[in-house]
Design a protein around this nucleic acid. Structure first.
Lengths: 209, 209
DNA sequence: TCTTTTCCTGACCGTATGGTCAGCTAGAAG
DNA sequence: CTTCTAGCTGACCATACGGTCAGGAAAAGA
């Protein structure tokens, strides 16, 4: 109680407001796209005056760029789950688990990323060409190692990665379609079933089980 | 030659200009999203004055709705490839072929659809609830029939459909990301490899081969 | 306490957007 | 040829947008 009423310190204010704005921005950008989102709406969702947004983030682009890079960081972190695995069943299985969890917990972030890429990656093209490219070639080599070791079938590693991304992110990006067909949001049991389905089909699809 | 210079008849003019506008609109909506697209830019791409667009399509929403419903029709038509197949290898294989071909030939349409669904399907919610729902339940039953006949493993039909959509549409919606990682557009050979990879992994994933 | 720095915001501005409309051009009909 | 109607468009309008700024409030520092 005293904690909630205590006047906030400088750096606390900054931290809190930036987080508030970023959270609101992610939601609005996901729902309306970059072009459809307005600073006024983001401000309303964040519960702050519009001018205050421009105090923390000079331009709409700067705010958007920060939102996108935050999402990218989350994904890079989740990608580590694939490393240090003895084989594809554990490595790819863990990666699917991690990505499905992101689709469930951060659907807005996933949508912002998808929207950005779909529109030609105008603000994060450098990420694609550097970080993502390095990550991809590294994991493709990892997968090729499993193939060479006879732990899975000889599938094209790049296309396997595309399928992993597609299958998992679909539950976030096309969540609205899935919910409509399902007659409502997926329950805990249904999320578990989704995760199991994706894992079973892909692991069997690459001849790992 | 005389054909190109001959004055156009009334209905020819209408047909030609509407097609021109819809084509330009699909491209611009795909590249910028609904909110980011402008009637002026669509007009420029179509090579017509902006006022002429409003002569054929009263509002931006009406034009957008027409673009989206055109895409939906293409997909429904492609979906027929799954019917009248003796089993999952032929049925699902043909469906993957058809959807991959759409991703290659109509990437803009796919992006517009994805964008629409991601933003909560504000203009085609009725399609989702009626046509798509009926189609989905029908094909889920078809798949269940193959399972009951022992022609494939007992996977959840709904999640299989989601995976089919995700894996194939990914090559259109995330085409820019794929091209960046690939160092350029996919060649004919690479497209064939993509199609084969998807088919191989999924058909093996459902225990059909 | 006094000064400095950060935080905050109502009011404002230039621009770009979706949409309108009066009036023109040119096929079609008679 | 005359009339009618569909096709066409430059100029215009109201609105909403991203962004600015002067000046006030409040925390930090001396």
């Amino acid at each position: 109680m005293s904690d909630a009423l205590r006047p906030l310190r400088r750096n606390e204010i900054r931290q809190q407001n930036e987080a508030l704005i970023l959270q609101a921005a992610e939601k609005v950008f996901a729902e309306a796209g970059f072009g459809g989102a307005t600073m006024q709406l983001i401000a309303d969702v964040a519960g702050l005056p519009k001018a205050n947004l421009h105090y923390y983030f000079a331009t709409k682009e700067e705010l958007y760029r920060k939102v996108v890079s935050n999402i990218f960081d989350i994904w890079l972190h989740a990608a580590e789950s694939m490393d240090n695995a003895p084989g594809p069943v554990e490595g790819i299985g863990a990666y699917i688990d991690a990505k499905m969890e992101i689709s469930r917990r951060h659907p807005d972030g996933s949508k912002v990323w998808a929207s950005e890429v779909m529109h030609g990656a105008p603000v994060i093209q450098d990420y694609l060409e550097t970080t993502l490219r390095e990550w991809t070639t590294g994991r493709a080599a990892l997968i090729q190692g499993w193939i060479d070791a006879g732990q899975m079938a000889a599938v094209n590693p790049d296309h396997l990665l595309y399928m992993l991304w597609a299958a998992t992110q679909h539950y976030a990006d096309f969540g609205h379609q899935i919910e409509t067909l399902n007659g409502g949001p997926l329950s805990d049991v249904q999320w578990r079933e989704a995760k199991d389905s994706v894992k079973t089909m892909i692991l069997r699809g690459i001849g790992a089980v």
